[in-house]
């Protein structure tokens, strides 16, 4: 166990898997000598060489397509898109190719690839470099969607994602890159589809993902002062979704708040709310309340961006609303 940043934990996972499996390689824009736009692949080019840590042209369809083709032909690629916002120019290779190959070819294909993509607002990157796009991916059968909130989870989930025989979308909040936490040494894995209780509580369940887990934990501290005990559940993967951990928690607290930074309308939180409504509405003692960004593009000016990002106050208000 050592204290590491979220970024170092991801780097650690990449290095360990590349040491272990010669079929694992990294491609993406500026992932080589440059070390990645955010520095996630730093040092890997020096360690593994250009054959396995390879800069691509700025060609997102090509990057994802190369990963899909190489995975189908027996390799285990880890591809990086510089920002999740760039998925729009390359989506076909993910949702029509990677996600569907196995099914439409009758179970013959295996597409063991990971697509790492930084997302999230908070750095003044404006409308095309700040979005949280997880709900797009959750709607696609055939891929898995991983969205870690801590350095330890990032490491354990990424190693599992690389070893998984399916296409895995791995979403990293760029504000989390500098977050520190205790990270287990060596080959640490977390099964995909297993959520985690980040804080135990008895009055209300807050299901949160990515950076919003920290916001929810901060809100829990605030609410504790009012005598409200909040349980924070981090599903860690949105597809497959650990519905058991959510339903169990809601069964205990009888109240649900779902919080994410992505736009609230049509967000992944709507799916979680719907699952609870379908499976456990009888056990609820208050309305399900969702916290998410307003229905507008992400603004540049700091004052506007901060108003856009759902914060501690929004989670506190949501908890109070469901308990009212």
């Amino acid at each position: 166990m050592a204290t590491k940043t979220f970024l170092q934990a991801i780097n650690d996972a990449l290095r360990l898997e590349m040491e272990k499996d010669p079929n694992v390689f990294i491609i993406g824009e500026d992932v080589g000598k440059f070390g990645g736009c955010f520095g996630v692949t730093q040092g890997l080019y020096e360690k593994f060489g250009e054959r396995r840590v390879r800069d691509t042209p700025i060609t997102e369809s090509g990057i994802i397509g190369l990963a899909v083709g190489a995975a189908a032909a027996g390799l285990r690629p880890v591809a990086e898109l510089m920002f999740v916002d760039f998925i729009g120019v390359a989506l076909d290779q993910l949702f029509n190719q990677a996600a569907k190959m196995r099914y439409m070819f009758g179970g013959k294909a295996k597409v063991p690839m990971v697509l790492r993509m930084p997302q999230g607002a908070g750095v003044g990157a404006a409308a095309q470099h700040s979005q949280s796009m997880e709900s797009w991916f959750v709607h696609i059968p055939g891929i898995k969607v991983v969205i870690p909130s801590t350095p330890a989870d990032a490491k354990g989930l990424l190693i599992s994602a690389i070893r998984d025989d399916n296409p895995v979308v791995f979403l990293e909040h760029k504000v989390l890159y500098g977050a520190e936490g205790e990270v287990p040494d060596g080959e640490y894995t977390i099964p995909l589809g297993k959520g985690d209780i980040k804080r135990e509580g008895k009055d209300v369940t807050v299901v949160a993902t990515s950076l919003m887990v920290k916001t929810a934990l901060d809100a829990a501290d605030v609410l504790a002062k009012d005598g409200i005990s909040v349980e924070v559940v981090d599903p860690r993967c949105l597809s497959p979704l650990d519905t058991d951990i959510i339903l169990k928690s809601v069964g205990k607290t009888q109240h649900l708040v779902v919080a994410h930074e992505a736009v609230k309308q049509g967000g992944a939180g709507a799916e979680i709310a719907a699952v609870v409504a379908e499976e456990a509405i009888g056990s609820l003692a208050g309305p399900i309340v969702r916290v998410g960004a307003p229905f507008c593009p992400i603004p540049f000016a700091q004052s506007l961006e901060q108003a856009y990002i759902p914060g501690v106050d929004a989670v506190v208000a949501a908890v109070k609303k469901t308990l009212a």
């Binding site: 390689f25 190369l66 899909v68 083709g69 190489a70 189908a72 032909a73 076909d92 290779q93």
Partner: peptide, 18 residues
């Protein structure tokens, strides 16, 4: 999907080179 095979072929060929 018209044109989708191109990137896949690039990936398959990359696996041969790799």
């Amino acid at each position: 999907i018209v044109g989708a095979g191109g990137p896949l072929a690039v990936g398959a060929a990359f696996s041969c080179q790799y």
